[in-house]
């Protein structure tokens, strides 16, 4: 019988929802689910997780107050050993990707990164070559470490609240420390959990295009704004707007791609969206191959019309 340890990610005293995707993946394997929360003053996070785990272990220690891969990896590996975990899971967020390989090698475990499906207790599917190929990987070590692509797993069902138990954390000596975090402040929803995303590409011709075309449409739809890698690299918009294999992987209800050609690396980051609309003047643009609705037109002409029509439709 499998024993799972879910590593909780949290920020500002709240559970990062992507963590629940890891719970959902573990439920597919079956067995007993434990979770661990590291930090200080983490009671609320533990309580949020309790309906999804038999036991939530809280590791409070000044040495793990801020997230840093080295001390966190030791405490997580110690906890995994203490409970005899067969599987250690986390969301494949920036934080999970940074942290979990250290946990794996500490446990002499093989690791499956960024999985999109669970085949059985030791076999998983994951995107390779920027999502052009799906690989099936078999992990043969006694303990397995897995990070889970959050957009591929629906939120799990909550059960009866599990127990919350303190775990005696010993972070050991660390050669690294957290210094500061510079959050990008925005009134819009975050890309990773927006219901609607309006994204722009090179077709917008410059940063002005985002202001005059993308922003008004996003305002009407209360949408997050995304962008292709090309326009982020060109400095038109902030780096963290990038949707794609090298940026954020998203799966909103509605994704409107404006002036985006649809390079493989961009499509890899948004093809999981429920409904995709593409607006591009180039009829052969690859974005139309993944779009549910394609409009071949001059975006500078039709987008203002669309924004007005959406406003009317919502009114």
């Amino acid at each position: 019988m499998a024993t799972h340890l879910i590593v909780a990610e949290h920020t500002g005293g709240k559970l990062v929802k992507a963590t629940l995707a890891a719970v959902s993946a573990a439920q597919k394997v079956g067995g007993t689910i434990h979770a661990i929360v590291l930090g200080q003053g983490i009671g609320d996070v533990a309580a949020e997780l309790a309906p999804f785990a038999a036991t939530v272990h809280t590791a409070e220690h000044p040495g793990v107050k801020d997230r840093a891969a080295q001390p966190w990896a030791k405490v997580i590996a110690d906890a995994a050993t203490a409970i005899g975990a067969t599987h250690v899971w986390a969301a494949a967020t920036g934080a999970g990707k940074d942290l979990m390989p250290r946990v794996a090698i500490r446990l002499d475990a093989g690791m499956a990164s960024d999985i999109s499906a669970v085949v059985n207790d030791s076999t998983f599917k994951r995107p390779m070559w920027a999502g052009n190929i799906t690989g099936t990987v078999a992990v043969s070590s006694a303990t397995k470490v897995i990070t889970v692509r959050p957009t591929e797993f629906a939120a799990p069902a909550a059960g009866a609240a599990g127990t919350i138990a303190a775990f005696a954390a010993d972070p050991g000596a660390s050669k690294m420390s957290f210094v500061s975090f510079d959050a990008v402040v925005s009134d819009r929803p975050a890309l990773s959990d927006a219901r609607v995303i309006v994204a722009g590409g090179r077709g917008l011709k410059g940063p002005e295009g985002f202001k005059t075309i993308v922003e008004p449409m996003a305002d009407v739809l209360s949408a997050a704004i995304g962008a292709s890698r090309a326009v982020c690299d060109a400095g038109w918009v902030p780096n963290d707007w990038q949707v794609g294999q090298t940026g954020k992987v998203v799966a909103p209800e509605l994704y409107i791609a404006i002036g985006i050609s649809g390079a493989i690396q961009h499509v890899a980051g948004m093809k999981g969206s429920k409904c995709i609309v593409a607006i591009n003047k180039e009829p052969e643009a690859p974005i139309f191959q993944v779009a549910d609705y394609g409009l071949v037109a001059d975006l500078f002409k039709v987008c203002p019309e669309l924004t007005e029509a959406l406003k009317a439709a919502k009114a």
């Binding site: 475990a109 093989g110 690791m111 499956a112 076999t123 995107p127 390779m128 999502g131 052009n132 190929i133 799906t134 690989g135 099936t136 990987v137 078999a138 992990v139 043969s140 070590s141 093809k271 995709i276 139309f288 191959q289 993944v290 779009a291 549910d292 609705y293 394609g294 409009l295 071949v296 037109a297 039709v302």
Partner: peptide
Amino acid sequence: KVKVVGYEEPAAKQAGQKVPD
């Protein structure tokens, strides 16, 4: 410890429809 045991092409998303306006 980790071996790729299979490769496949991801399910292609059905290309949708073009709309006139």
